[in-house]
Design a protein around this nucleic acid. Structure first.
Lengths: 146, 146
DNA sequence: TCCATATAGACAAGCAAGCTGTCTATATAT
DNA sequence: ATATATAGACAGCTTGCTTGTCTATATGGA
């Protein structure tokens, strides 16, 4: 660690590689119209009870940006907007069958992308790595940030 | 690791936090006109012998994008373009005094941003973390990638 | 020496993904 | 009842890249 910037570059490169690999694998599964951010949107939507505003907060973007993203996903058939049971202003987001399939593909892709790391480090070290990251990572929106 | 996507989100969140913190500290030092990517540009330029094309490769962007970034940094007084000793087409990039000051500020900011991590994990675990990341990280351009 | 091909960088136009600002309808609290 | 806050839509703009094209210079082979 002669130059601490190198450490940042390392973490950055790693996350970039991870995102890229997952995206590539998802594309290979036939989902050519999805971008990495969609995976994180799916994750939030599939957890249930999400509105566009919730999604905006989860992704760390404005409501307008989230609304645009949702419109895109609706147009591509991955997401539905349903009436909200208790709030006539809001719309509940829900995955379609295609949306769930894409979510499974992303999950599988992530598993495959991480697998060589587990192998390279060994289960023990990998477990420690995950533990360390969990301790260090902030609770915040999922976002690439520059 | 019930859902491997969580791991990606973790790494992503971590790198995002890191970049953000460094950027905030650099801003606080008075460099309000710099973005995170500039730090990585400075790092490459200060290592010497960089042309715009070299910078493009280092950052993983097109030559045009790099040229635009260089023009911006020249305009702000952080970088100089000098004649290349052996190639009349090329221009050697060089940091000004301000550029070097910004580079030092970024380095210091990175050190400070990482310091609480070292403390949280302890030197031993932190060292292992760095070692693991070094093994896993690709040699590639520095880039946020989505 | 000449020519073909590659490279450095500038100029122009286009585009994707975010932003701010504004609006309506609905909810909530005083 | 009334004031304030929130969900989401619509419009227009900015930013940070992209592709495409051009000139000047370098380089390697006939």
């Amino acid at each position: 660690m002669d130059t601490p910037l190198t450490f940042s570059a390392l973490v950055l490169a790693l996350s970039g590689q991870l995102v890229q690999e997952i995206h590539d694998r998802v594309s290979q599964q036939g989902f050519h119209d999805l971008r990495p951010v969609h995976g994180f949107a799916f994750a939030r939507i599939s957890s249930g009870g999400a509105t566009t505003a919730d999604l905006a907060e989860h992704l760390g973007v404005t409501k307008q940006a989230a609304a645009q993203l949702v419109a895109e996903l609706v147009g591509k058939g991955y997401v539905l907007r349903r009436a909200h049971p208790h709030d006539a202003r809001a719309r509940l987001l829900e995955l379609t069958d295609d949306g769930r399939a894409a979510t499974r593909a992303a999950d599988q892709a992530a598993r495959e992308a991480v697998a060589p790391w587990r192998e390279e480090l060994g289960e023990k070290r990998f477990g420690e790595l995950v533990a360390d990251l969990t301790r260090l990572a902030p609770r915040g929106p999922v976002r690439p940030s520059w």
